[in-house]
Each structure stands twice: as C-alpha cells, then as structure tokens.
C-alpha cells in the first residue's frame, strides 16, 4: 500500500464533506448574524446621533460584546459547529477567537496567560489586515502621485 493508493482509499471511505449543506448553513447563520447587526445599527441610528456610516463602529462593538457573552456561556462553539464559516467570518467570530483564547489561558495568570495568548488566533487577522491595508494604501498613494488615479 503506497501513499497514493491509500489517499484514494481514504477519500472513498471517509464521509464526504456535505458542501451544499455546509454552505446553506453558513449562509443562514452568517446572514442571521448580519441581520441582527443591522437591527443593532438601526437602534443606534434611531436613538443616538449616528448615521448609516458612523453607526458601524458602535454596531461592531455591540456585536463583539454579544459574542463575548455567548462564548463565555459556552454557546458560541455550538454556533460555530452548525454555521461553520457563518460563525467565524462575522466580527463575532473574531470576538469568539479573542475571548475563547483569553478565558482558556486564564489558568496561566493574567499577564502571561491572558495577555500573552489573547491574540493567539486573532492576531494573524490583525497582522494581515494591517499589512494589506498598508500595501493597498501605499500603492494607491503612489498611483495618485503619478496621476494615474484620483482619490
């Protein structure tokens, strides 16, 4: 039995990934989280002085807060199991990554444990977000300077 033959056998016998079902669940769960986000945004627009644009910041913070509670009470991993990407792609998934790492490493103390591991999972998102923003903004700035495009 060589590696290739075994890989083929493994593919045949392992349960197939239910692509369509996973996508539908991701769509429904992710869509619902965004829908809740929209209600939160509407709340901020109606009762506070936020416009459609500026309401996104408090909305994001509120959703992060909700996800903190869900993670702490042990519900978010269920959402993640059902929704897959529907649970991890929204900002609530980012919050789940931060909060779950923070409470997990509490046993090692607040400085080395919580502080050192909080961004264990989410740190890469910040890194790639910041670096790609840097590159994109740099390219755009140069292109503007060269007169190829305008702001």
């Amino acid at each position: 039995m060589n590696e290739k033959k075994y890989a083929a056998l493994e593919k045949e016998i392992s349960p197939k990934t239910p692509y369509l079902r996973n996508c539908i669940k991701a769509f429904l769960v992710g869509g619902t989280i965004c829908l809740i986000g929209q209600f939160v945004a509407l709340f901020y627009m109606t009762y506070f002085d936020f416009t459609e644009r500026t309401s996104s910041n408090p909305t994001v913070s509120t959703m992060i807060f909700f996800a903190m509670l869900l993670t702490g009470f042990g519900f978010y991993k269920k959402i993640g199991q059902i929704g897959g990407a529907g649970g991890s792609v929204p900002i609530t998934g980012f919050s789940n990554a931060v909060v779950s790492a923070a409470i997990e490493h509490k046993s090692e103390g607040y400085v080395l444990g919580v502080g050192g591991n909080m961004f264990k999972l989410a740190g890469s998102v910040i890194l790639f977000g910041v670096f790609s923003a840097f590159v994109v903004a740099l390219i755009k700035t140069i292109l503007v300077k060269l007169g190829v495009v305008s702001w």
Partner: peptide, 20 residues
C-alpha cells in the same frame, strides 16, 4: 435588512467554500 442578510450570508458562504 434583506440585503444585509443576503450579502452577509454570501460572504460567509465564500468563507465556507474556503474551508471545505
């Protein structure tokens, strides 16, 4: 609300395809 649901859901579907 409809567009929020649909667009948010579709972005998650892209994520799910990257997973699966």
């Amino acid at each position: 609300f409809i567009t929020a649901f649909v667009v948010g859901g579709l972005i998650c579907v892209v994520g799910q395809l990257l997973f699966d």
